[in-house]
Amino acid sequence: MDDPKRKYVIPGDVITTGPYRAEENVHLFGDKIIATAVGISEIFDSGVRVIPLTGMYIPRIDDFIIGIVRSHTSLSWELAINSCYPGILPAQDVFGRDFDPKVDSLTSRLKKGDLIAARVANSDRSRDPLITIADRDLGKIEDGELVKISPTKIPRLIGKRGSMIQSIEGATKAQITIGQNGYIVVSCPEAEGLLKALDAIRMVEEQAHVPNLTERIQQMLGSNSE
């Protein structure tokens, strides 16, 4: 890589020494800052971090995610959110404050296998992350194709100020909903556009570390439509 402030690293690599803040995916050992994940290291302002290229989704408050309903108790649903912890969606969040477990049946609103667009309401070390759909644009997703990619590739799929995703949507007429957790829903009125959009997403996942990816994707989308 040309940029001296960015390097490819694997766990154990010493990124730099000196008075820097250790941010994400690094640890401080004496005055060394060491990578803890495979990825690209960045030195910015006075901090050092590694943008990982592999790893599991770690829920953070306010993340927009897509969840799959896995099961429910009488008070909440349990969602698969591509993390080591299940997401918990409380019934009150869907039924409102006058939810009564004796009267309301959870399966009347969300069933096993349903997809929902949601946000992380709370996440800490001691409990499974709390999920909410009580906001505009959140709730059950009615149709579309679910694609799973590594959550570490999501920033690349969105691109700088949304450039990548806008290129893909523009060229394929698909509507793409991206969860920070690596679950993506693609819907498109035309089958051809859908397939092209899926191809583009796969390509981003496989080549996330390659520079000038946006141009390559644009090329691919352009050449396919000819």
Partner: peptide, 11 residues
């Protein structure tokens, strides 16, 4: 372990 993206202090 590194391939799985599990945070590691060192190899």
């Amino acid at each position: 372990l590194a391939d799985a993206g599990i945070p590691m202090r060192d190899m």
